[in-house]
């Protein structure tokens, strides 16, 4: 268990600032998720923590020690790569044993340790296979077993679920989370998938263009985004943003419902011109426009699938959002501000 800290860390590739002055610290045993679109610098940040990328400025600290210029092998970290990076010429057993051998572990202790790691991920039976004879899910387990076998103090994961199919991804997410709780490793997890981030993270760090936009609990980030980028990056469909009296008003699609379901005093109603509807089974997505003199915008409403709403395409209905669900953003900076509507 360890605390990882990044102090004013930057990584420039020529003119491009992949990571630009990031300050960040994990708690001990925390599951921290770095979330952002591709190219936001999250993987570069992770690689600098691992020691396979050197920062242009700033320092990386593990348990208070500056490790910025130390090679990966002395940092006691483990990393799972997006491609899993299994050694294709070694069997599963040899893959898992490799980090133990490089650390000069007593030869007699290695089989027991490998057995322990393999059993944790249910891959004991695959020990004699080569990576190319494994399915995607099995490879991912081998990669995890290889990472945990030497009980690192920090566990780094770079989109480890992105190569799995949707069904497997959900169960792998659950297993990963339970495993991390049990072992208590400080874990930093990189993903561009907001569902993974919401489901896995103790805290989420949202990154964009090399900078941190917001750090917080998943619920905080979803409910109270710090700016319009975070507001539109999380949630599917994202938060609706409309201009209203010189301020940007945001509300989540699930909070934008037919006005007759709302208490008139506590809500703000908008005429909603429906342009398109999607029935996804569990939910209905209703796309349309709000067209008024003071406020216009393209917005989405999300209704639970079991709600029958007599709505037709091409017509306009009164929809509303509760005042307490409205968020306000500065029209110039995009940052969240206090505000209210008349």
């Amino acid at each position: 268990m360890a605390v990882v800290e990044a102090r004013g860390i930057s990584r420039h590739f020529g003119e491009v600032r992949a990571v630009d002055g990031v300050n960040l610290a994990t708690a001990e045993g925390e599951f921290l998720v770095l979330l952002g679109p591709s190219g936001c610098g999250k993987t570069t940040l992770l690689r600098m923590i691992a020691g396979i990328e050197e920062p242009t400025h700033g320092d990386i600290l593990i348990d208070g020690h500056v490790v910025t210029h130390l090679p990966p092998r002395v940092r006691n970290i483990a990393m799972v790569f997006q491609s899993y990076a299994l050694y294709p010429h070694m069997t599963v057993y040899k893959n898992i044993a490799f980090p133990l051998r490089t650390r000069g572990m007593d030869k007699a202790d290695i089989p027991r340790k490998v057995e322990w790691a393999a059993s944790m991920f249910g891959i004991e039976k695959l020990k004699h296979r080569k990576p190319r004879e494994l399915s995607g899910g099995e490879r991912q387990r081998v990669a995890l077993a290889r990472a945990v076998v030497r009980e690192p103090s920090v566990f780094l994961l770079d989109e480890p679920l992105s190569n799995l199919d949707a069904k497997l991804r959900a169960s792998a997410r659950e297993e990963l989370r339970q495993f991390q709780k049990r072992m208590g490793f400080t874990t930093i997890y990189v993903t561009h998938d907001q569902v993974e981030a919401m489901g896995l993270g103790d805290r989420i760090v949202v990154m964009h263009q090399g900078r941190i936009r917001q750090v917080g609990l998943p619920k905080e980030i979803y409910d109270s985004p710090a700016d319009t980028f975070v507001a539109t990056f999380l949630g599917s469909p994202p938060m609706n943003l409309i201009e209203h009296d010189g301020i940007v008003v945001g509300f989540r699609p699930e909070n934008f419902l037919p006005a007759d379901r709302m208490n008139g005093d506590e809500s703000v109603a908008y005429p909603f011109e429906i342009t398109y509807m999607e029935d996804l089974g569990a939910e209905k997505l209703i796309y349309g426009n709000i067209r008024e003199r003071t406020h216009t915008g393209h917005v989405v409403s999300r209704l639970p699938g079991n709600v029958e709403a007599p709505i037709e395409q091409g017509r306009t209905y009164p929809f509303a959002a509760l005042r307490r669900d409205l968020r306000f953003f500065d029209i110039k900076t995009g940052l969240r501000t206090e505000g209210s509507l008349p």
Partner: peptide, 10 residues
């Protein structure tokens, strides 16, 4: 990534 994994693995 394989070379980097080897480095991380020590």
């Amino acid at each position: 990534e394989i070379l980097e994994a080897a480095e991380v693995d020590g």
